[in-house]
Every structure is written in C-alpha cells, then in structure tokens.
C-alpha cells in the first residue's frame, strides 16, 4: 500500500524532473535534474524487486555518468555562458516527434499482453552466475566492445590534444579570467 503510493510519487518525480531537464536554461541545472530523474528511476527499480539494478543504476548513472557530464560542462563553459536558450527553431517539430514516439510506445505497451510472473525474482548471486555461466560469451563480447570504445575515445582525444594543446589549456580553466585579459 505504502509501496504503491511511493511508486506513484517516484514515477511522477521522474516525469517532472525529466521535463525540467529539457526546460532548464542553465546547463548545470539540467544535468542535476537528470541526476534526480536517474535517482528516482533507481527507486522504481528497487520498488520492482530489483535492488541490484537499483544500486548499479545509482553507482554508474548518478555517480558516474551525471558526474562526468557535470565535469564536461564545468571544463568547457564559462559561468555566464552556462545559461543558454533551452529551445530553438525546431521546438514544434521536436514536440511532434516526441509525442509520436510516446504514442507508439503507449499503444504498443497497452496492446501487449504482458506476462505477470509470480515467480520469485532471482537474487544477485543467481544473476552473477547466469551472467558468467550461460551468457559468458555475450558478457565478454560486451566488455570487449566497451574496451574498444574507450581506446577509440582516447585516440580521438589525443589527436586533438596534440593539435590544439595551447587552446585546450586555455579552456581548461573557464573562470580563471583576471583583470589581465
């Protein structure tokens, strides 16, 4: 009973913070709203009896991805420039596309006869065993893919780094402008 109410509150919080992510003018605010949305999603996972997923969601998305985004904003933007116009000329088109996607998903979900399982959810130990036993090949393939992506990112960043070292150094310290310049 209390759990159901909590789920509704969490769901509402996800939607509201999602709206603020696109509506805030300040980029940093947008990222922080995104962090809140991700946190509430983790709460929903916990409500749905998937505590491991909830924990990992917080650890990687809120602690990792949101933090990295914030870091990116901080090293690339000046304080004043962080407040950007949220909308642009494609507002109407964007809204139509978003509504269309929402309609398709909603209809698909409503029309599908989703199985309601009463079986107990597997615990974390079982999850680990399944991943490293039945799906070992897929698991390793995914880690290889991620490794390739990381190496690729480093290669790209390195090349630009060498070309524009001086420029990068200047942009690293966004608000360190003094009276001299």
């Amino acid at each position: 009973m209390i759990g159901d109410a909590l789920a509704w509150i969490l769901g509402a919080a996800v939607v509201i913070s999602g709206v603020f992510v696109v509506a805030s003018r300040d980029l940093v605010h947008a990222v922080l709203w995104l962090a809140l949305a991700l946190l509430c999603t983790a709460g929903l996972y916990a409500y749905l009896d998937a505590p491991f997923l909830a924990g990992v969601q917080v650890l990687t998305y809120v602690g990792g991805v949101a933090t990295l985004m914030v870091f990116g904003v901080m090293v690339t933007r000046r304080h004043a420039a962080a407040a950007a116009e949220a909308g642009n000329d494609s507002n109407v088109v964007g809204a139509v596309v978003a509504l269309g996607v929402f309609a398709v998903l909603a209809i698909a979900i409503l029309k599908t006869d989703l199985p309601t399982s009463t079986a107990p959810t597997p615990d974390t130990a079982e999850l680990g065993r399944t991943l490293l036993d039945d799906y070992l090949l897929a698991f390793e393939a995914v880690s290889l893919l991620l490794l390739a992506a990381v190496v690729g990112a480093v290669v790209i960043a390195r090349r630009r780094d060498v070309e524009a070292r001086t420029q990068d150094d200047a942009t690293l310290l966004p608000t360190m402008r003094t009276g001299a310049d």
Partner: peptide, 14 residues
C-alpha cells in the same frame, strides 16, 4: 538489506 555494500558504494558515489 541484502546489498548493503552496493548501497554504501552507491551513496559514496553520489
């Protein structure tokens, strides 16, 4: 909770 260590680490990350 079953995932106490994970919870600790997650809070630490936030």
């Amino acid at each position: 909770i079953d995932l106490g260590v994970l919870y600790l680490l997650a809070i630490g990350a936030v």
